[in-house]
Amino acid sequence: MVYGTFTEVFFYLFVTLIAFGALVAVTSPILMKAVMGLAMAMFGVAGLYLYLNSPFLALMQILIYVGAVCIMIVFGIMVGYTPKQLAEYAIGPKNTVLAIVTSLLTVGVLAFALVKTQWVEVAGAGAGDYSLAHLGETLMTRYGLAFELISVVLMIAMVGAVAITWNGKRRGIK
């Protein structure tokens, strides 16, 4: 029972991390703080993956999102000559009403739809083999196409990123 209470408390902690981090990411006027908020929200999502029976994905979330994507965005801010008037006054005065209405409408419509829907629970859902060995085996056999596809996409993205940044430099585009 004590264990159950602890897990509930930590669940609320992760949800708070997500809510606070996402709000910081979209409302902070300083771009660097927005990235920190993004990292915080991603940590929270990683915590929720633990509750969804997948510690491996929680670690991947921290490794890829917090460790790679956030660092890349930080480099983009620091190396990419973001001008001061954009980096420190990152939230625009325009579109505020439009943005609030759109996001509230999205929440309202989707929340209404998903509360109204009768989700059919499948027998045996969440009880299958969640082990890493099974995941890796499936990735090599049944989902081999997805594995190959993401490898190709990542390689093209890397080569493309290097090509885009190099070409502009060599041709001296002003």
Binding site: A19, T27, L31, V35, I73, A90, I100, T102
Partner: peptide
């Protein structure tokens, strides 16, 4: 849904391309 809405809000509010990238994530 909350994450989606926060991202949409940030897409419209951020003034820089990097800020929009944060919202997409």
């Amino acid at each position: 849904v909350f994450l989606l809405a926060a991202g949409l809000y940030g897409m419209m509010q951020h003034r820089s391309l990097i800020g929009m990238l944060i919202s997409i994530e």
